[in-house]
Write a protein that binds this DNA or RNA. Structure first.
Length: 322
DNA sequence: TTCTATAGATCGCCTGGCGC
DNA sequence: GCGCCAGGCGATCTATAGAA
């Protein structure tokens, strides 16, 4: 590489390249998740003007030597991530492709992958390579949870989770082990029910159930971090959406106000995007945690959240081992 | 050494929001 | 309604790394 990191060589197409290093990607994704959860910069599923400048400022703050600018660096990098994320999602939408949440990579037959790549060049380079930002990007770019029309409010989210679980149960029994004989219905690019089909596939073979459907939902969610991140992300998005839709009524809705306050507090304490989402999931499940958070003196709040997330992780682990 | 795939940057057009 | 601005996105170009 003859292009120094963050340095500018010569202007012109293909020139003036900079090499993104992992820590820069990490910070960019963290900032992107944060901004996507901030109703000031994102509402109704789309970003507002100037959000790339916010990302630039955030990166400048975290990595003062990087000299990454909104245009073209961040814009280009986000496009790259979005392309790869879309390609991944497209694959996961097909039968035979699954996501390994531990290795953070696609799992499928190589032959099948190569065939897919012939029609979808964007998917090249994703086989056997970990893509650590899929969870975060699914929160940011999943259209079904972002667009206004097909978007769900908090009640819908929970209700749909229950309904979806019932469908999964039924399909599990029907489908058996046959993952490739018949293609599952394709997810249309902008379908509002799209992610449910993908999740259906990922839920295969993981079922145990109790008599409480809602408890089942959260128990099952805990078994799969990717799905959990997506679904909790939906909740957070729904909360944000409600915040903007009911701006006038917000002052009269203490629960909603408390949720926003709690999430803002977690973000203020500089937790990562995925940690914020996990915390939001806990707040939805156990609203008392929010009250307790604010009851504590400020210096203790960070430790409280850390403990809360650790307990949540332990709870998930227990559920997994049941 | 040549070829090929990939990453990163740029260009140009479209669209939507916003102020006048 | 019009113009401006910024995001989205496809097309394209070039540098580079790795394979043949």
């Amino acid at each position: 590489m003859d292009i120094l990191e963050g340095s500018i060589a010569v202007r012109g197409r293909g020139k003036n390249k900079r090499k993104w290093i992992p820590v820069e990607d990490d910070e960019l994704i963290k900032a992107l998740v944060d901004v996507s959860l901030d109703p000031r910069w994102r509402s109704d599923g789309s970003f507002k003007n100037g959000y790339t400048s916010v990302l630039e400022a955030r990166l400048a703050e975290k990595l003062p030597d990087s000299k990454i600018s909104a245009t073209p660096h961040i814009e280009s990098r986000l496009r790259y991530f979005k392309t790869k994320y879309s390609a991944l999602e497209q694959m996961l939408n097909k039968s035979g492709f699954t996501w390994d949440p531990t290795k953070k990579m696609i799992q499928c037959e190589k032959q099948q992958y190569e065939t897919h790549c012939k029609n979808n060049p964007d998917a090249k380079g994703l086989y056997g390579v970990s893509f650590p930002y899929y969870d975060e990007l699914s929160m940011v770019y999943s259209k079904d949870m972002a667009t206004g029309e097909g978007a769900e409010d908090m009640t819908d989210v929970v209700q749909n989770l229950e309904e979806e679980l019932v469908r999964v149960n039924a399909n599990d029994e029907e489908d058996g082990e046959d993952m490739t004989s018949v293609e599952t219905p394709r997810r249309s690019v902008d379908s509002t029910s799209s992610s449910s089909k993908k999740r259906k596939k990922e839920w295969k073979g993981k079922k145990t159930s109790s008599s409480d459907p809602l408890l089942d939902v959260f128990n099952e969610v805990s078994g799969d971090l990717k799905v959990a991140t997506m679904l909790i992300g939906k909740m957070v998005q729904a909360m944000d959406r409600e915040a903007s839709n009911q701006e006038k009524a917000r002052d009269e809705d203490p629960q909603q106000k408390l949720r926003e306050k709690a999430i803002n507090e977690v973000r203020r304490l500089e937790f990562t995007g995925s940690e914020v989402i996990k915390a939001a999931g806990v707040f939805v499940r156990m609203p008392d945690q929010m009250g307790m958070l604010f009851a504590l003196p400020e210096p203790l709040r960070r430790k409280y959240i850390v403990d809360m997330l650790r307990d949540e992780a332990a709870r998930r682990e227990r559920e997994r081992s049941k």
